[in-house]
Every structure is written in C-alpha cells, then in structure tokens.
C-alpha cells in the first residue's frame, strides 16, 4: 500500500504503521510536559531573567545603561547638587542626584545589556515574572517599584572551592593586609623605642590599664 522507502526496507509489511502506533501509545503513558502555570508555579532556573531591579544607592547617574539600551526603554532624570568641601578651605564638590529611574517593560526585550554595562552594580536580574498589567502604561516601573524588585534578587551563587577570589574581596584584603602590616610595623617600632625604659613604662601602663 505504502510506497517502499529505500532507506528503511527492514521489517514486515505494516511495521511502519505499527511503529507509528507504538510511538503515540508510549507518549500517552509518559507524563505530559504541560505546565499548569496558574495552579502550579513553574520551576524556574535560579538566574531566570524575569525583571530588572534597581539598587538605587549604587547608581551614579552615569547614564551608561540608558545609552546602551537597544530599546531606549530606560528613563533617567537627575540634577546636580553641590556638596560642601570635605576639609575646610577645600573646593566644593558636586554630585548627581537621581530624580527618576524608570524601565518601560513594554519595550524592554530583556537583553540584559543595561545590567552588563552598569559599572557600579546598581542593576540586577530578578526571577519575578508575574507583573502583567491590564494597562500598558503600568508596565513602566518607576524607581520605587524597581527597588521592590531588588529585594527579590537572589544571592549570588557561591564560588567554586578552587576559584580565584573575587576582585573586590582581593582588593579589600590587600588593603586590610597593608593596614595590618603598617600597624604591626608601628607597634614593632614602638616596642623597640620603649625597650629602654621598659620597667618604668610597663609599671605605668599597667596602672593606666587597671
């Protein structure tokens, strides 16, 4: 009945038909892959790109994110404020103060470039995804909403045991080591200096400490 297929001549006549039936029957006995989403929450990968959260304190209004955004969906307004000089007689400093930070998720294509380019770690992926709206305007999330998302950002994954130390930790440790070494050197110098008048000083120190 069916024309012979040169590739698979094997099998008795009708074996192809039986094979087709077997495939569907086997599929029927397996668990179906349907996600029953509203009833059952989907199991998402831990770093799912659901929504973007803003850690406002880290933002310096450098505008890199807004400029790199392919969709132009990030809105940033800011103004400059002058800060009094750190030391008396110094020059006044100025800094940017964030007035508005908004992401229009109706335009966003979740490429994540803004997060990649942020030099100050102010933007983060969050796995939350249930923010559908009935009005498209509500998809523009302002800074308070973006901050809310920030609390849903998962902790960064632990490093591999053999991994190199993170850079910021390394820097911090280097600074701490340097400080410690300095202190140690100072202490050593102080001890050397005090070695001559040790008995008198020691007695006085003990008194003072007591």
């Amino acid at each position: 009945m069916a024309p012979e297929n040169p590739e698979k001549k094997s099998g008795w006549p009708g074996s192809g038909l039986a094979k087709g039936l077997a495939v569907t029957l086997r599929t029927m006995t397996k668990r179906s892959v349907t996600e029953q989403y509203p009833e059952v929450q989907p199991e998402l990968a831990p770093r799912t790109r659901g929504v973007i959260g803003l850690f406002e304190e880290n933002c310096t209004v450098c505008m890199l994110c807004a400029r790199e955004c392919p969709d132009w969906c990030i809105y940033i307004d800011s103004h400059k404020e002058t800060v009094p000089p750190a030391a008396p007689g110094g020059r006044e400093r100025s800094r940017n103060v964030l007035d508005r930070f908004a992401i229009d998720f109706s335009l966003c294509m979740y490429c994540g470039i803004c997060i990649e380019v942020c030099p100050f770690d102010a933007l983060f992926w969050s796995p939350e995804f249930e923010y559908a709206e009935t009005d498209i305007h509500n998809l523009t999330h302002e800074r308070d909403k973006l901050r809310e998302w920030m609390w849903t950002v998962p902790e960064p994954p632990a490093l591999d045991p053999a991994a190199e130390e993170p850079k910021e930790l390394g820097t911090a440790r280097k600074a701490a080591d340097k400080l410690a070494a300095q202190e140690a050197a100072e202490r050593a110098a102080a001890q050397q200096q005090a070695a001559g008048e040790a008995p008198r000083n020691a007695a006085r120190e003990q008194e003072g400490e007591a």
Binding site: T24, L25, T27, M28, K30, S32, V33, T34, Q36
Partner: peptide
C-alpha cells in the same frame, strides 16, 4: 484527553 496525552499535553483541565 487521549489525544492530548498522546501528544504530551494534558487536554482540557
């Protein structure tokens, strides 16, 4: 239901 499960779906729920 049978058709759905044979196609790896659930069908009407």
């Amino acid at each position: 239901k049978v058709m759905a499960h044979m196609q790896g779906r659930l069908g009407p729920m």
